[in-house]
Design a protein around this nucleic acid. Structure first.
Lengths: 242, 242
DNA sequence: ACAATAGTGTCTATCAGACAATATGGC
DNA sequence: GCCATATTGTCTGATAGACACTATTGT
């Protein structure tokens, strides 16, 4: 059998669609998990930012391009994109044969300053809080992204506590109270402050200056100790799941 | 800006590469985790079975085609393929721009009767036991597949015990001893029979016949009770990770 | 009776969850 | 002193891990 040229076979368009996650007001009691949603026309509706994979570009390249052309920000610091799943139904795009490689990206709120689109709150059951529908399968992508994120923030069991804010939503240094509020915003449920402190402390180091422990500026009560992560924020290789 | 036809942009070839996992001698004390490896020429070396995604075919379609054309068996029962990761380095295939979507598939040994290739044992640290090199990045795929599989079989913590043989390597009905040997083969370490039994029993149901519990054929000692899974083997949706 | 395997009872160290007391600041 | 918040001490119920004992068969 003669070998046909590899390039002559029909090939799918490959899109990279992003669930950009952040925690707004991460330092405060109003911390909230949100996802970046954009409006588009033809067809009209709300979508996640995304883009076709261009020649010999990687997923990481394409994520950068999405930020540059669709979101309008140049992130200096991002958690590496995480592969969520593949959408490959042959008829999911009626214009052409296209498969979607859905990823999630976590960013601190400050890096999303001026981004195009809205930061929509995520409800406790993992979907958009304002219940507005999204086009195509994009709502599924949000659910998958939130589920994956929560697994990373959830309190597991005895042997391994969760890393403190593994996706780095909260800038250092921070108090245990602030850290707890971020975790609560992500997983959507309250945590006991004492148990939380006991589990996190082994993974935190107090900020020292001049041989003294640095405390937070006191508003009302006793000032809290400021901490840094002793394990740096998650640095998972690209395209793998945890 | 005029919109260029979507189909006129260059597109990558998309391959589906499979880590086919099985447990040989699943009913016995010699149970062993193995992966299907094939020989190829030009370039010469050992590879995992794989294939280009053809027009408007899905990943699931392509997995079927790999079994038909590359492996030479028609599986009647398979655990759905699991997405492991994406290989997208622009120069990973020097013939053309191609990205690889690596999946793992779990099958009972019986379904691999007459398959082309060798079932190579996996060592306890998750790589091939015979240490022969594989072409390209295929060794990484094996590691990722084994790691993902072990997560599913590993004993987690208090609230959720692992499902009994979630990928269905062991045909029903089985004894607790047989089930334990399969789990030990997968995770590569020994388990206490008493603790194992306690954790598994809530997820198992004894086989009844005529109001009586059916026992295994006794060779030497006391006959063991035969069980079935009360939760059917894992039915995860395609392309998602666990 | 004995060997061999299946199955159960129970002890212990650990720890998550819960509650409460104490420490340290502003006012 | 009083209030608010941070931090630490301690009790308790659950259970994984470990060990040892009992049960049921073939020989």
């Amino acid at each position: 059998m003669a070998r046909r040229n590899l390039d002559s076979y029909p090939r799918p368009g490959v899109t990279v669609d992003l669930a950009v996650l952040t925690v707004t007001d991460a330092g405060t009691d109003d911390a909230a998990l949100r996802v970046l949603v954009q409006e588009r026309t033809d067809p009209d509706g709300r979508v996640l930012p995304g883009r076709f994979l261009r020649e010999r570009h990687t997923v990481v390249d394409t994520v950068q391009e999405v930020f540059e052309h669709k979101v309008g920000v140049s992130p200096s610091e991002v958690t590496p994109p995480r592969l969520l799943r593949l959408f490959d139904a042959p008829d999911r795009d009626d214009r052409t044969w296209a498969i979607s490689v859905a990823h999630s990206v976590s960013m601190p709120e400050a890096e999303l300053e001026g981004a195009k689109g809205d930061l929509v709150a995520v409800s406790s059951d993992g979907v958009l809080a304002d219940r507005g529908p999204m086009l195509w399968d994009h709502e599924e992508i949000v659910s998958a992204a939130v589920e994956s994120l929560r697994e990373r923030y959830e309190f597991r069991y005895r042997n391994d506590s969760p890393p403190p804010d593994p996706d780095g939503f909260l800038p250092e240094p921070f108090t245990l109270h602030q850290l707890r509020k971020v975790h609560e915003a992500v997983i959507g449920e309250e945590l006991h402050k004492d148990n939380f402190a006991r589990r996190m402390k082994p993974q935190l180091t107090p900020v020292m200056r001049g041989g003294e422990v640095v405390k937070s500026a006191a508003h009302r009560g006793r000032p809290a100790t400021l901490y840094r992560r002793v394990t740096s924020p998650d640095s998972q290789p690209v395209n793998t799941l945890g």
